[in-house]
Simulated scan of single mutants.
Amino acid sequence: MTSIVVLGAGYTGMAATMSLAGRLRRRTDVQITLVNGSDRFTERLRLHQLASGQDLADLRIPTMLAGTGVTLETGWVTNIDADARQIRVDDERVLPYDTLVYALGGTADTGAVPGADEHAYTLDSAEHADALARRLADLESIAVCGTGFTGVEAAAEIAERHPHLRVVLIGRSEPGATMTPKAKAYLGAALRRLNVEVRSGVEIVKILPGGVALAGGDSVEVEAVLWTGGVRVSPLAAAAGFEVDGHGRIVTDAALRSVSHPSVYAIGDAAAIRQGYGTMHGTCQGGIPTGVHAAASIARELAGAEPKPFRFGYIHMPVSLGRNDAVIQFTHPDDSAKRLFLTGRRAIWYKETVSASPWKTFRQLMKAPAVGMVSWRRGGRYTR
């Protein structure tokens, strides 16, 4: 019996698992096991909504896996023995594997500045987002640290739902810095309409119990801080002896296999995946296609064929600005901005379409062809 183990049931890991289940459903000699910290699927694309106090659908992984033949192991991965090809879960269960799909993703980099671990909320999980939501009604001020798209979406969502709050968005770059000037101007105007204070071009040096310390001695006094500045990955890959880059991501070959351990496929945020334009950055837009490709490659290997190179191009930067506005910046494959962008109602429809419940996408992956496809999933263009 060939054992395939998938670590992580986020968008990327679920895409790999469901695609594997579909491609290998006629193989009685293959067992697929999915390992995740809980049985709940987290819609990370919507955690800023949960943090603002909105309800999200309660999506359960066993419901999606029903009838697939996939075994779900609930628990935290505590060790990977690459030589023995074994995974240890919760320091008590050992799972052997022939092929490993590493999709553990990333978390907010609260180690970037002192105090963030102790004093800042994050959007790492539904539990973390819900913890912030429970406090917002009793606050008068909050700082969102990080002016990337996650920070922008969180600040806008909180400001719209809690107009009594003073919301301060703080970071080095201007919000929407990678967009065209017109799209960036629209985003900035939307934040002003929502009364979000923007402090860009500043360096955060410390998170305090009552605010944010900036370089040069300045500070922003607030009652709570939400940290969205940067992403870090689990140290498990480096500890297991996989070759990793400077950020701890597994270095892959063209087919998404670990260059040091070819029996391991690394996908999504956890992988340093090189394309012609550089290393991919972690987004759902790119993560799902990497999961699909890994599944297709494993199926090819089991059939005695060589996996094909992975090729991917970005097509958009979708940013929600509360529930009543959005801006969609379309891009070239290397993620640089095109002239075309959407705003207002059209952008809301577009954003909600690409951010819709992933259940339909995962079910479609059960029917995916084994070879030669062009697929558009979550806005990313993936060709094989």
Rank of each mutant, 00 (worst) to 15 (best):
residue 127 E to V: 15
residue 99 T to Q: 11
residue 104 L to T: 06
residue 73 E to F: 07
residue 66 A to W: 05
residue 111 G to H: 06
residue 108 A to L: 04
residue 53 G to L: 10
residue 61 I to H: 01
residue 116 A to R: 07
residue 85 R to A: 06
residue 99 T to P: 03
residue 130 D to L: 13
residue 94 V to T: 12
residue 75 G to T: 09
residue 117 D to R: 06
residue 51 A to H: 09
residue 74 T to H: 03
residue 137 A to L: 09
residue 76 W to I: 15
residue 61 I to N: 04
residue 128 H to L: 05
residue 77 V to I: 11
residue 115 G to D: 06
residue 59 L to C: 04
residue 133 A to C: 06
residue 70 V to I: 14
residue 59 L to W: 07
residue 75 G to F: 10
residue 87 I to E: 14
residue 137 A to V: 05
residue 134 R to W: 06
residue 84 A to M: 10
residue 97 Y to K: 02
residue 68 T to N: 10
residue 98 D to M: 11
residue 59 L to F: 08
residue 120 A to C: 08
residue 86 Q to K: 07
residue 129 A to M: 15
residue 84 A to V: 03
residue 101 V to S: 03
residue 55 D to G: 11
residue 113 V to E: 01
residue 53 G to R: 13
residue 131 A to V: 10
residue 136 L to S: 04
residue 79 N to W: 04
residue 92 E to N: 12
residue 127 E to N: 13
residue 121 Y to W: 10
residue 66 A to K: 10
residue 74 T to C: 15
residue 92 E to W: 02
residue 101 V to D: 04
residue 88 R to A: 04
residue 60 R to T: 14
residue 125 S to W: 00
residue 61 I to V: 12
residue 54 Q to P: 02
residue 87 I to L: 12
residue 116 A to F: 01
residue 87 I to K: 00
residue 73 E to T: 11
residue 126 A to P: 13
residue 74 T to Y: 06
residue 122 T to K: 10
residue 133 A to K: 04
residue 100 L to K: 00
residue 125 S to Q: 07
residue 60 R to V: 15
residue 64 M to G: 12
residue 76 W to G: 08
residue 128 H to I: 09
residue 64 M to A: 12
residue 133 A to G: 03
residue 103 A to R: 05
residue 118 E to K: 12
residue 136 L to M: 02
residue 77 V to K: 08
residue 101 V to K: 01
residue 98 D to S: 09
residue 87 I to A: 05
residue 119 H to A: 04
residue 55 D to P: 05
residue 94 V to K: 12
residue 92 E to K: 07
residue 60 R to A: 09
residue 82 A to D: 10
residue 108 A to N: 11
residue 91 D to N: 12
residue 89 V to M: 09
residue 137 A to T: 11
residue 134 R to P: 08
residue 67 G to T: 07
residue 91 D to H: 07
residue 100 L to W: 03
residue 88 R to I: 00
residue 59 L to A: 13
residue 59 L to M: 12
residue 64 M to D: 13
residue 52 S to L: 02
residue 108 A to F: 02
residue 59 L to S: 11
residue 56 L to K: 01
residue 120 A to D: 08
residue 87 I to V: 13
residue 127 E to R: 07
residue 68 T to C: 12
residue 72 L to C: 11
residue 106 G to R: 15
residue 108 A to W: 00
residue 62 P to R: 14
residue 99 T to L: 14
residue 60 R to I: 15
residue 95 L to I: 14
residue 130 D to W: 00
residue 135 R to W: 10
residue 105 G to Y: 03
residue 135 R to G: 08
residue 124 D to E: 15
residue 78 T to A: 06
residue 71 T to Q: 13
residue 129 A to H: 04
residue 127 E to M: 09
residue 65 L to E: 11
residue 110 T to Y: 00
residue 69 G to P: 05
residue 133 A to D: 05
residue 111 G to Q: 09
residue 129 A to C: 13
residue 104 L to K: 02
residue 126 A to E: 15
residue 56 L to T: 02
residue 93 R to L: 14
residue 84 A to E: 08
